[in-house]
Design a protein around this nucleic acid. Structure first.
Length: 666
DNA sequence: GTAATAGAAGCG
DNA sequence: GCTTCTATTACA
């Protein structure tokens, strides 16, 4: 009898699942990217055709080959799209994501489109994408920014480049960065503009909407799934070809992309922390490569990775130097005078309070930044005792504004590691002494001091929290000088004050940031100071109060090249990125210390040894809930070698443990 | 000893 | 994501 013609296809479901082979009756061939329905464990689900699984061909992995072999294949129930729903470059990106980040293709698919690309349900006509003008409109576009001839030349190069081309824009300031992004995309078709966070994206939206109108589409993780689906439909239909968004926008299913702009390219927000731990910058560059498109990475303080790529000629470097505010590093005066505190035991250096008072008296705004939440650690002067967290052992921090539910306590002691809370006492818990001395400079304590030293004599409004209440009721107070006080969050708000940006900023003991884990901590601190500088007025000034001025020596002039030279030399010496590739393996094993202490020499599949790959660890850590886990760090000279080395390391881990792999960890 | 339940594996 | 299989615990 005539046997019916069968074709076999590898399908990807948007689940944590590798591709599976299904069959389809008839000679009709389905193109990769086509959406179909097929049965998985008795339920019919939507999936994407990844490849045709041709007889005799062995597609990625074990025992598959032609589907008609070892196991019975199920059949594709129906075909939902007439041809590919997503472009070939995007499909390529999916495969690259799965390979590079070592996750199943299904998980990559899920992360890229969140499942919405596959859900059924009729898209309702959008209500009104326009939102009412809720904003007082801060910084306005200094329109003449880009008239300088070198800026015009840069724009021309970006616009006219053909095929794949990467640019690194080292912008002098945020407004310039935004202006160049807008101008570069102005007469382009198929543009993706990505911002590191939603609030920045909304600023860009305000600027781009008048230019692109209905061509502009917004895409970010906070969209409801209906809105997200609606956005996808507009993009797929070609109704909009300019996509603005946060990191998920890098996957926008445009038919054709010609320009990708990644603003604030060094921002840590670009690292995805769940499921597929991708880096948006790496994905953006890879997508541009696959799309044969141009990619513009921009920042006021580019990452060491991108800067090295620029130095090596992989990216075209567009450098626009700008005036930077003066940075002054103050040695902590108390260090010299021992424990003999000045009157009142002030934390802030006199030079800072004087400079702040000067600026505020002139009606200028000021910004005080510290990394520590809470007030202080109460230390008993009599017996030296301080309270520790029962599970973490770390010092508990006094929060005066946080009321503990414990009877009688007007303040509480909080563990910043695990969140443990208890009521605070007025006296020492061990000796009953009354001499509790505050140790450390938390925001709450700084606020007390600022109120005492600065607001006492003049009318000043302290702004110390997020913009939950952004009402125009500030109007009468708008004349008062503002003292912004808080962590980075507050400095962001201060930077959005348009013409009234702070004239002076002080950082109180920022050195703790140097000791955050990870090899990038220095670079982060430097970038943060640069961003702080960008938030100040043109005649701004930053004062750093520190006990370790040596650590800030390289940051003092905000000399980017000088800093990067040192930083890159150190990274090279230690074998860290961008001179190597690294991966971090997290192992959640209940009690087992670790199966293999010394991993075997790293080899590729074919048995070739990789000379410079190494596996460090395991080290034991405890998470916020007090749960133990273990970390392995894998270093290798190239991405390829890294993959092999990670594979080798994984084989040494006993089964039963929950393992996650993070390629290029933050 | 079996039943109830939780957690991991596998899905073509 | 949902089913199914397996390991573990509860319980008469």
């Amino acid at each position: 009898m005539l046997k019916s013609v069968m074709a076999f296809f590898d399908l990807v479901f948007p689940l944590k699942l590798k591709p599976l082979t299904y069959e389809m009756e008839g000679a009709k061939t389905l193109l990769p990217g086509t959406v179909v329905e097929a049965e998985l464990k008795k339920t019919i689900r939507r999936a994407l055709i990844l490849d045709e699984n041709l007889p005799g061909e062995n597609v990625s992995g074990e025992g598959r080959g032609q589907g008609a072999g070892k196991f019975p294949t199920k059949t594709i129930k129906s075909v939902l799209t007439d041809g590919p729903a997503i472009s070939a470059p995007l499909l390529g990106l999916l495969k690259w994501m799965a390979g590079y980040y070592m996750v199943p293709e299904g998980l990559a698919l899920k992360v890229m489109f969140g499942g919405e690309l596959f859900e059924k349900g009729k898209p309702r006509k959008a209500k009104r994408p326009e939102r009412g003008g809720t904003r007082p409109a801060g910084a306005e576009a200094p329109a003449a920014l880009l008239t300088a001839s070198d800026a015009v030349a840069a724009l021309t190069r970006i616009r006219q480049a053909q095929d794949y081309r990467a640019f690194l824009l080292h912008a002098p300031n945020g407004p310039f960065e935004g202006e160049l992004a807008l101008e570069a995309s102005r007469d382009q078709k198929g543009v993706i503009v990505i911002c590191p966070e939603r609030s920045r994206m909304m600023e860009y939206e305000r600027r781009m909407k008048p230019v692109f109108g209905g061509r502009l589409c917004v895409l970010h993780g906070g969209l409801t799934s209906a809105k997200r689906r609606f956005a996808y439909e507009k993009i797929l239909a070609g109704e909009t070809d300019v996509v603005l968004g946060t990191r998920v926008a890098v996957f926008a299913p445009l038919k054709k992309v010609s320009l990708i702009i990644l603003t604030g390219e060094e921002d840590p927000n670009y690292k995805n922390r769940q499921d597929v731990r991708y880096g948006t910058r790496e994905v953006a560059v890879m997508r541009a490569w696959l799309e044969k498109a141009r990619v513009l990475l921009s920042s006021i303080c580019p990452s060491a990775e991108s800067y090295l790529n620029a130095l090596r000629g992989k990216y075209e470097y567009l450098r626009f130097p700008g005036e930077k505010p003066a940075v002054r590093v103050l040695l902590d005066s108390k260090k010299k005078s021992g424990s003999g505190l000045p009157a009142g035991g002030d934390i802030m250096d006199r030079a800072i309070t004087a400079a702040f008072a000067g600026a505020l008296e002139k009606g200028r705004n000021a910004l005080l930044v510290a990394n520590r939440p809470g007030h202080s650690v109460p230390l008993c002067e009599d017996c030296g005792h301080f309270e520790r967290c029962p599970s973490c052992g770390t010092a508990l921090v006094l929060h005066k504004t946080l009321k503990a539910k414990k009877a009688g306590a007007s303040a509480s002691l909080l563990c910043h590691h695990c969140g443990f809370v208890k009521g605070a006492q007025e006296t020492c818990g061990v000796c009953g002494g009354h001499g509790l001395k505050p140790l450390g400079a938390g925001i709450e304590r700084l606020k007390e001091e600022a109120e005492r030293l600065l607001t006492g004599t003049m009318g000043i409004k302290i702004v110390d929290r997020g913009k939950k209440t952004e009402k125009p009721e500030d109007a009468p107070e708008a004349l008062l000088p503002l003292l912004y006080l808080g962590t980075k969050r507050v400095s962001k708000i201060a930077g959005e004050a348009g013409a009234a940006r702070p004239k002076i900023a002080a950082l109180i003991y920022p050195e703790s940031a140097f000791f955050r884990p990870g090899f990038r901590s220095r670079e982060r601190v430097f970038a943060e100071i640069n961003h702080l500088a960008d938030r100040l007025s043109a005649d701004g000034k930053i004062i750093i109060q520190t006990k370790t001025p040596e650590l800030f020596r390289a940051m003092k002039e905000l000399d980017y090249e000088g800093f990067m030279k040192e930083e890159l030399e150190e990274r090279k010496a230690l074998g860290y990125p961008p001179f190597s590739k690294i991966a971090q393996i997290t192992i959640e094993a209940p009690t087992k210390p670790m199966p293999a202490q010394a991993p075997p020499p790293v080899k590729t599949r074919s048995g070739v040894e990789i000379p410079d790959a190494q596996v460090l660890g395991p080290i034991e850590k405890t998470d916020e809930k007090g749960k133990k886990f273990f970390l392995l760090l894998v270093k290798a000279p190239t991405a390829r070698a890294l993959k092999a080395a990670v594979g080798a390391a994984l084989r040494t881990i006993a089964p039963g443990a929950k393992v996650t792999v993070d390629i290029d960890p933050a």
